[in-house]
Design a protein around this nucleic acid. Structure first.
Lengths: 205, 205, 205, 205
DNA sequence: GATGAATGAGCCTTCATTCAT
DNA sequence: CATGAATGAAGGCTCATTCAT
């Protein structure tokens, strides 16, 4: 029992260190020795918990996406109007990235691994689906909440959800690589508005 | 003159080989020897044209994004309605990716390099701006072409262009990593329609 | 007392496990963890009984050669004609190797260690001497039992004993590494006969 | 052409270094860096010629056994009586081992590898067969040369050849590991005489 | 310009051994 | 006595780059 807690703590400690080093140096630029040093553990300890560098990266992706999923589920269950939850979902996402400057580079780094590490690819693939599904659910609720909604809207929800989820990813990517910094949260919110408007607009438009 | 042609041919030959190997093994998984073998040249020859692996990757990014830019400009200059050009821009993009299964992995691989190689980062950053600008121009033309347009639309063009450009990137990313294959062209077109509708919808909506 | 029995049992348990793992993976290919797992004990327990891997190997050699010596002595003391005891010594040796397919590889593996581990080298050196001496004793008895013996024979016993002992080792080695399996007991017996005949043959021959 | 010579020279250079280091430290105790240093080449050069440590060892075994085979064939073809050739074969073998104190430990070290490296095992297996066959040929010639030979002798040649070959190996092993040094050549010659006498002795004996 | 042998710093991983509990 | 997490020195191998020819 105490062992399990200790073990879990160690794993978190290692993930934390790996996150810092991967963000700073990239996955391939990170030496296991760097992670060892950053974690404060010994090399043997690190390898006791993760058999390879790849397994460490895979575990980190699992952990990060799980945390994100958890936050998503929590927000979805909140007793607030769908529109507010949607706004908060997007703004919260932007705020976290903006607050922690390591997060975006780390995410992109891990995303790039997805092509070569099937387990990570699967994680991201599932996460993309879940994120899109979440958007779809919210958008449908938004439609229903709209007084003069129309039948068309519900049918457009799939495309809008995909547009929304994709745009969030794509814009975040741009923000991460942009020469000229911009306010991610604001731009993201504008993008959301355009897409929601596209969802709700009357067929005639 | 003949030398220059020869030289240019060699460079193209090397880019071609690098593209194949990077797509297959990733940048870090690709050894210079692999590219040498794929190119049919010798190691010395390769290093004659590119002083380092990084320079080769950077050159490849330049070449690819230049080609894309060129295609974009050509399409933009075509004597066709803006809506048609927009559709063709997006569909053409999807068609090319679908046709050549190496292209998307290669692009993601090079994109990931942007974080560590400033020159590549700059290339992508500029390209993103140009792509967004292109979208903005097309969307504005679409607004103008719309008989029923309203003042609001032009002001929304920026956000819609960003949404569009981002969504194209984000959706392509999803398509590249998806467990379950889907029709990129079709989904992309649905996304475009949602966003264009959002752009044109009346304020009341 | 019960402790000593327990301790001896543990040591035997560990020797047994080490024998299996060394035979399967070789000394250098065997990890202490493998022996731990095979023994069913814990790592700490193993290190309680043997301070190092080398000590474990050394102990195993001691045990194995002691057992062999014991068997030899027992057979030597049997109330049977020398010729029969010689035959049984060789045949019994072959039978045991043939019965347990792990034994020969294990023996060769440990023999190879002799070069680097002085203690093991000494063990084998002594054992070789004892084995040769045993052969010499038997051969002398065989000479004496021979009605038709001649003075020459006794003087040849040293060489014949060395030839016999060496041939047994060398043939066993060949049998252990041979591509094409052969009947060790039979070949060994043929070899013994040739050498005994050489011992007894008249000078004129 | 010059390249091939250079390449062959390099390989010989590396074999030479590996032989020295393997003899001194054993295969497992030898670090590639030690061989690199001993060879005077660089690590990259070593790995250019041998992809792994195992491949290097395998190559070395090939080379050594080939050389031995070559010497054997040469001696066999010499225009001398069989008995002399047999004596020279054995004495020459002993003389070489005695002259170069590294040779025997090296041979035993490589022999031990045979159990774990199939390629080396095959080499030794074949070599054993060839050596035995060589002995058999010589012994048959010796029988034929004997004026009062008898039919029995030829039939015993197989067993005698095996005894001889095995005894040479076994005695060499004892000599290599012995606490108390002895004269290999002399002992070997005594052993040969016993076995040859066993071969030629009349059935009555 | 072209060739490919040669360089050597670097890195992931292993594993015998230790020790707090 | 027993446990298994922790240690860290060591080593086989890679690969971008160089350079004599």
């Amino acid at each position: 029992m105490a062992d399990e807690q200790r073990s879990a703590a160690r794993r978190r400690q290692i993930f934390q260190a790996a996150a810092v080093v991967f963000a700073r140096q990239g996955y391939h630029g990170a030496r296991m020795d760097d992670i060892v040093k950053e974690s404060g553990l010994s090399k043997g300890a690190l390898y006791w918990y993760f058999k390879t560098k790849e397994e460490l990266a895979t575990g980190l992706v699992h952990q990060m996406l799980s945390a994100e999923k958890h936050g998503m589920d929590e927000l979805m269950a909140a007793p607030r109007p769908a529109a507010e939850r949607l706004e908060e979902l997007v703004r919260g996402f932007a705020r976290e990235l903006t607050k922690d400057p390591d997060k975006a580079p780390l995410a992109l780094e891990l995303l790039a691994l997805a092509q070569n590490i099937p387990d990570i690819r699967a994680c991201y693939s599932v996460h993309h689906e879940q994120y899109t599904e979440c958007m779809r659910t919210l958008l449908l609720e938004v439609c229903e909440a709209e007084p003069d909604a129309h039948a068309e809207a519900a049918r457009r929800a799939d495309a809008a959800a995909l547009a929304l989820a994709s745009a969030v990813d794509g814009l975040t990517l741009r923000w991460t690589l942009a020469r000229t910094a911009f306010d991610l949260e604001e731009k993201l919110w504008e993008v959301v508005q355009v897409i929601v408007r596209g969802l709700l607009s009357h067929p005639a438009a």
